[in-house]
């Protein structure tokens, strides 16, 4: 008799997990499996045919361009991460510890989200007239007498790409860090003070360790967003620079779906490895 309720409980448990499993299976697992399968297919100029061949991977790993492009992608991710972290941490610290009233905190936090009320393509493209050869930035600098000739590297360069990335993704760093900072018990800071720690020591030994999960979540957001991006790199570099996303989008435009799928699989693995490494440092789950 005791077995029946137990069994029922199992059935019930499975049933409750079913909707989510189905959704994940249909919209996450199935597409990825599909991409992995297609990556072994062959392509002619206007069609793809089922096959099991390693041509796509062979070409991918055989081309020096691939390594260069993956290198560039990691470089963008690393620099963007460092800058968004520095800015995001500072902003979150200011909001969490310097602003005292909760109303003010919420108000200022909302102010941070204002840029997100427009599409990110628009936020990105609006940099172009600003940074251009005859743009506002160059004209202002010239009128101040700082420079004589317009700065060419402001637009269509790595600089402009990273600037756009930082602009687009800093908020993804601010939000999780702010969130964890708000949950730090204020009495810990007082205790640090009482024990003679100065502001900097408190920051390094108390706040920073306690904020790690937030930093990690923000890091995962930023790294995955930057590594998967293609449109920012295309617009801000004037198609002059490439990252993995652009490699994939070029392949798709030229109807080389299997080759695009192979690149996507390699990119997916790279991102998963990066995240796995990150998770070794911090146990996010414990902190959620």
């Amino acid at each position: 008799m005791a077995a029946t309720p137990l069994k029922n409980r199992h059935v019930l448990g499975w049933l409750m997990a079913l909707p989510l499993s189905v959704v994940l299976l249909a919209f996450l697992i199935a597409p990825i499996v599909m991409i992995a399968i297609v990556s072994f297919w062959g392509a002619t100029e206007f069609s793809i045919y089922p096959a099991f061949q390693f041509d796509n991977y062979e070409f991918l790993f055989g081309s020096p361009v691939t390594y260069k492009v993956f290198g560039a992608t990691l470089k963008y991710a690393l620099i963007t991460w460092a800058l968004t972290l520095a800015i995001g941490f500072t902003v979150a610290y200011f909001l969490a510890f310097h602003v005292r009233s909760l109303t003010m905190q919420i108000a200022l936090f909302l102010v941070c989200t204002i840029p997100f009320w427009t599409s990110n393509i628009i936020r990105m493209i609006s940099w172009i007239p600003f940074l251009g050869r005859n743009g506002i930035a160059n004209q202002t600098l010239i009128s101040w007498g700082v420079i004589d000739e317009p700065l060419e590297w402001l637009l269509y360069s790595d600089f402009s790409v990273i600037l756009a990335f930082v602009h687009l993704y800093t908020l993804f760093m601010v939000v999780p860090i702010f969130n964890t900072m708000m949950r730090i018990d204020k009495s810990l800071l007082e205790a640090a003070r009482d024990n003679g720690a100065n502001g900097f020591q408190t920051l390094v030994h108390v706040i920073l360790p306690l904020t790690k999960p937030g930093i990690m979540i923000g890091t995962i957001f930023v790294v995955t967003l930057v590594m998967g991006d293609f449109i920012t790199v295309r617009f801000m570099s004037g198609s002059q620079r490439a990252n993995v996303g652009r490699l994939i989008s070029n392949d798709i435009a030229l109807l080389q779906y299997p080759s695009a799928a192979a690149t996507a699989v390699v990119l997916l693995c790279t991102v998963l490895i990066v995240i796995a490494i990150l998770l070794r440092f911090v146990n996010i789950r414990k902190e959620l």
Partner: peptide, 25 residues
């Protein structure tokens, strides 16, 4: 030529080509 910095940008759409030219880039 590309590595020597000959090109300001490449364009893919009609509008991009118009903007590059009109802005003097």
């Amino acid at each position: 030529a590309k590595q020597n910095g000959q090109f300001r940008a490449f364009w893919k759409t009609f509008d991009e080509s118009v903007n590059l030219m009109a802005s003097g880039e």
